[in-house]
Structure formats: C-alpha cells, structure tokens
Design a protein around this nucleic acid. Structure first.
Lengths: 263, 263
DNA sequence: GGCTCTAAAAATGCATGCAATTTAGCTTTG
DNA sequence: CAAAGCTAAATTGCATGCATTTTTAGAGCC
C-alpha cells in the first residue's frame, strides 16, 4: 500500500489534484470509504480515537466533503460513533460484543433457514443450494488442506449463505443480515486465519459442511424448526474460531477486526 | 436558544438566507432529515420516484450538502435506494415487505427475550419491566378506551420493549432492532390507528398486555425458549392490526407508512 | 417505425472558503 | 488549588460554484 506522497500542490482553481487521477474509477467517497475501512481494520485509527477531518482529508488527499460522506457511511456500518455536533469517534468493541455479533448472526440466519423451509414451494428451487453444499463437502473432504482450499471454502461458504437468503425470499431479513455482517468480526469467515491452516481447521470445515447439508435437508423436508436450530448452531462455529484465536494471543493481530477490540 | 444576532459581525458575503433563521435549533442536516422523513411518510415523495437534489434543496431552503447528507441517512434507514452515480430513489415496498418486517421484529425481539432469560442474574433486575407490564395491564383493563389511554399505551409499550433490550444487554441486538424499526410500518405501534379506537382494539391491547406479563414471567423463571416463543407471537399482534387495516381500505391512508407501500 | 449517434441540458461529485461552534490554554477569582 | 471566565485556536457545518457524468432530445440512418 503506497502512501500518496503529497506534492504540496498549491492550486487555485486547478480541479483535479495530481493524486486523484492515478486511483482509477469510482468516486472519491467510495475510495475514502475503502481506505478508511482498511485503516480501521488495521488499527491505524484506534478505538475511542476522535476523528479529525482536516488532517485526515489531507492524509487521504481528498477534500472534506467526500471524507465526511465516507465517515457517515462507516458510522452506519457500525465502525464509528457519531457525536452530534462534534464529528466522529472510532467505536470501541469488547469481546462480549463479538460474541453477541455471532449470536445475532445465528439468530438471523436461523430465521432465514426456517423461513426458507416454510416457504419452499418447489423442491427444484433447492438445486443451487444443494449443488453448493455438495461442492463444499467435496472440497473439504480432500485430504490436503491448502491455502487454495481455504480460500475456495470461504468463497463457497459465502455463496451458500447467499443462496439461503435467496430461498428465504425476505428482503428485510437480507438487509438485517447485511447490516449485522458489516463489522469484520461478525462475518461468517471472521477469525479464520489463513496464516495458520491446521488439521483442526479441516475438522471444523467438515463439521461446517455437514451442517450445510443438514440445513438443506431440513429445508427440503419443510422442517422449519430443525433448519433454524441447525443454522443457529452453524453460526457458533465462528464462536469456536474466536475461542481458538483467543487461546493464541500471539496470532490474534492477524485476525479480522482484532484491532477494533479492546482486549 | 437565541438567534444569532450579530453583535459585530463583519460579514462580507451574506451567509444566512432569510428562511433559515426562523427554524430554530440543531443543524440543517437534522432539519432536512426530519422534513424528508415527514414528506416520505405523507407520500409527498412517492415510491419509485427519483430524488432531484437541486429542486428539493430549493424547496427545503437548504443547500445541497446538508440535503445530500440527509438523503444518505434516509437511505440507511431504508427509505431510499442509492443508485451508485445517479443519486437516490424512493424505495418501493410491498405488503409482503411489511409482513416480513413484522416477522423480522418478532425474530429479533424473541432473541432479546430469550437472551434476557438466559442472562438474568439477579431477579431484582426485573423490577422495572415488571412495573411496566403491570402498569400496562392496569391501563388496558380500564373499561373505557380513550385516545389518552391509547397514547399512553403506545408510550408504555415502547418503554417495555426498551426495558427488554436493557435486560438482554446486547448492544448488537439493540442496534439491529433499531435499524429494523426505522421504517414506520415495522415499529410496534404501526397500524394502530388513533382515529378508529374500537372495542376490538381494547381486546388486542389486553392480549398484548398479557403477553408482556408472560414474557416477564418466562424471563423470571429463566425459560428462554418460552420467552422467545411468546415474544415472537407478540410481534404478530402487529400482523393482526395490519390485516384489520387492509380490510378497511378506506382508512388505510391514515396509517403509518401506508404511503410507502404499493398496494 | 425503431435504432443509433450526437449534442445540449440537467444532475451529481466535490473543492474551496467562510461562519459558527467547540475545545484548549490562560487568567482570574473565590 | 479548584472553579469560573475568557480568548484564541482548532474544528465542524455548510453555501457556493465549477467539472464531470448522466440523461434527454433531436437528427440521421437502416
């Protein structure tokens, strides 16, 4: 990541600052949002820290308007706290908050699974999610656990959860899950550390894949309560990952969002 | 709060437009947000309509920056859709979306009740919510249902739900519920029409109040599953209200958020 | 008539600079 | 020495205006 070295640039009405044209496409706001999210996750903006817009806009080489819009978005995602007439502050999170996030995701995905089961009309609608769960199962059954397998798992897992939401066909629920998963430690693949791929991890993936299949089976049989219960339990895999991560404090900084948490 | 009467004020360029000084307090952005929310609920901005910032800012007598910030907020609340480089559009909702919102609130409040039951340490923590549920019960048992009783019920009901969230002690869940209830038809008192206070309504309030008591009882006995089940059912009271409202199409426009929905 | 292309019009993105508010550093006062 | 003022610096709020992008309208073409 290259810091954009400011070439001072004393412009009167010159429109495009030099540093802008090199970052291709999108908008200043979008770029600022990405950059800030990165800074937050990497701990360059620390919990409880007050955001000062002028220095920050200078650092990011953008003006205060798109910066402010980006901050507003990050506040909505939960990264920042809004102080009514005083700007923004980096949100503080506790380990409890992480457990609560995992719980919340479990509740919501449980609801998605139940609703999917209740609303299933045509079993053919299950084709996609069935294919996904089978693909995941095949993947994790391979004896060797490599970084590619790991990456592929994350990808397929995300698609599985998305397919589940499609089946539930509930916009409001989708919105709620998206919001809940904004924070990096709330997402399904949080606390999976690609730096430490172990046989334990393979075990966890197998269990997870089996739960996927069970959820699909429950939906296929219209067993709403069962689908809900399994999906809730499935979210708790993240809890195990977290506990595992907390036992290895020396590795913890590699994990998603660890810098956001006061340990 | 006194208007800023300039005691020396060496203003070169006249800053404040005449129309601004009369709306007292807060910020332009906050005022714009309130005004727009009102316009949306009243149907002055219709579902699917594209927001044009320049005319709208002229209409609200504010500049485009605070207007844009307000629009961003309303998009986050779910009222507007963001079109990446094309501004905002008023969100369309279907009756299905309303049912789904009610369901979602049920799921989340169910989770809150369960967690409250699971986490209860000291029964004395129940004092507040017990007092509230009793007060509600006393209120709705009165034979006459007046507009004041109605208003008071709404108020106490909101406090009951807030107390429940306090008991759950889960920031993430609170956040999720607040988000889910941003939309007017998702809140607990949606589809209660103060213009048509009937004996049916009193019945509904009695049932509702009984459910409150049952939730508190379940929490007191650490019956997490029971608390969850009742709280979910409790949310479905709103569903009945909605069905009732849909049977009286002529009254529907008086209801919260009806103008947001394509019927 | 429908389609593509082009130019004008409209709309959003955002850089800049000023005003009002908040904060911080002193000074004064009890 | 702490609390209360007071002033200056820092900081956010936002009004303005220009550049870029998107939309629209019309002309030409198939």
């Amino acid at each position: 990541m290259s810091l954009n070295v400011s070439k001072d640039a004393p412009k009167l009405t010159v429109r495009k600052p030099a540093s802008v044209k090199d970052s291709r496409s999108s908008s200043q706001t979008a770029r600022a949002t990405l950059a800030l999210r990165e800074m937050l996750v990497q701990g360059q903006l620390r919990p409880g820290e007050k955001i000062r817009e002028v220095p920050l806009s200078a650092r990011l080489n953008i003006s205060r308007i798109p910066l402010h819009l980006a901050l507003e978005r990050l506040a909505n995602e939960g990264f920042l706290e809004v102080l009514p007439k005083r700007g923004f502050r980096v949100q503080r999170f506790s380990v409890e908050d992480i457990y609560d996030s995992i719980d919340l995701r479990g509740v919501l995905e449980g609801a998605a699974a139940r609703i999917a089961a209740e609303r299933l009309k045509d079993p053919r609608a299950l084709a996609q999610i069935e294919a996904l769960s089978q693909e995941i199962l095949t993947l994790v059954r391979r004896s060797r656990m490599t970084i590619d397998v790991f990456t592929r798992y994350i990808e397929l897992n995300a698609r599985f959860h998305n397919a589940l939401l499609d089946l539930a066909g509930n916009r409001m629920l989708r919105r709620a899950i998206e919001r809940a998963c904004c924070l990096p430690f709330a997402s399904a693949s949080a606390f999976l550390n690609r730096q430490y791929i172990s046989t334990d991890l393979r075990e966890l993936f197998l269990i997870s894949a089996d739960q996927h299949c069970a959820i699909v089976d429950a939906i296929a049989n219209r067993e709403g309560m069962r689908a809900e219960a399994i999906a809730r339990e499935h979210a708790r895999v993240a809890r195990r990952n977290l506990e595992d991560a907390l036992r290895h404090r020396e590795r913890i900084d590699d994990l998603a969002g660890a810098k956001l948490v006061n340990l």
